[in-house]
């Protein structure tokens, strides 16, 4: 319990640092937002008036505090290019990208864990070579390419979904989820391949350990050795790997959202970077960072439940 509290405190501290860095960095890069909004032709008086109105003359720390608070109150400033409150712009997209990521992640876990265990059980068997070949193929195909293939097959040819017409998540959740499923598959394929390979090699490595010999000496069959003894030992590195996966799904999702024309956070991010819409970029950066740090924290908490030795671990 103490460990969990410490781990969560660390998560919050990390987020404060990340958000501070993001805020300061964009404060420097973005130059004067008042000039950006009014254009270079505006008179200095007008710009000064707007600066005062936007609160830009106050000290950095005060503005940072107010902005950070905005993640809880929804007041994150105004988008330059859409002239809308940033939060209003981001909120629906957060939902879409979250759904996309969660579906992808569930696919990865549900498929790769049984498959990894199986491929370890039958390692060296007749189908092992074929499995490895398929696995390597899966790893080599980038999500945007499978994305294009899936779009062609299921949208252009079979019309299972209409490319470019993403149903609104709140109005037609079933339709939206179906649309997202195709994108999730293309995100999941390479990560499934990687997780299977990693789980297989971890299990085979554990099989060489002394405690396995002890388990056999007590009369365990292969299944008993694998499920009662080895699997739990093989899980810790896999959980850590899955946390990285969770982070990378979001990065991979940016491209896939483009391919499938999904109006998610990724597309908004790309558009906002192109438009130098810094308030939007800034907020998205912090949200993505939170997602990554959260995944790492959850993985650590799970691992600490699996392996009691980690409870002793000092800082981790």
């Amino acid at each position: 319990m103490k460990y969990a509290a410490r781990r969560i405190a660390m998560l919050l501290l990390t987020m404060v640092i990340v958000s501070l860095l993001a805020f300061v960095a964009f404060d420097i890069i973005s130059g004067d937002p008042a000039t950006a909004m009014l254009g270079t032709q505006a008179t200095p008086e007008k710009i000064e008036a707007l600066r005062e109105e936007m609160g830009l003359n106050r000290p950095l720390v005060v503005r940072y505090g107010e902005w950070l608070l905005g993640f809880f109150t929804g007041n994150l400033g105004t988008s330059y290019s859409y002239k809308l409150p940033v939060w209003q712009l981001i909120a629906p997209k957060v939902g879409i990208t979250l759904c996309l990521s969660v579906i992808s992640f569930l696919l990865i876990v549900v498929i790769s864990i049984p498959l990894g265990v199986r491929s370890a059980r039958y390692a060296g068997g007749r189908l092992d070579g074929a499995g490895t070949a398929i696995n390597q193929l899966g790893m080599a195909v980038p999500p945007f390419f499978t994305g294009i293939l899936l779009t062609w097959l299921f949208s252009t040819t079979l019309h299972w979904f209409i490319h470019g017409q993403f149903p609104e998540l709140t109005k037609n959740p079933a339709g939206a989820l179906k649309y997202l499923l195709f994108a999730s598959v293309s995100i999941a394929i390479p990560r499934v391949a990687m997780t299977v390979r990693m789980l297989k090699s971890t299990i085979l490595g554990e099989m060489q350990k002394n405690y396995v010999r002890t388990a056999i000496s007590r009369g365990n069959d292969r299944k008993g050795v694998l499920y009662r003894h080895v699997l739990k030992n093989a899980l810790v590195p896999v959980v850590t790997f899955l946390a990285q996966t969770m982070a990378e799904i979001v990065a991979g999702g940016i491209v896939v959202e483009q391919v499938f024309a999904i109006p998610g956070l990724g597309r908004l991010l790309v558009a906002s970077i192109a438009n130098r819409d810094y308030p939007v970029v800034q907020a998205i950066v912090v949200i993505l960072a939170f997602w990554v740090v959260l995944a790492g924290t959850i993985a650590d908490l799970i691992n600490q439940q699996i392996d009691p030795r980690l409870q002793l671990g000092g800082d981790a």
């Binding site: 002394n210 405690y211 392996d307």
Partner: peptide, 14 residues
Amino acid sequence: VVFQEPMSSMNPLM
């Protein structure tokens, strides 16, 4: 069987 190295011969997570 009682094995030579007790630490590594026990499953660390059981």
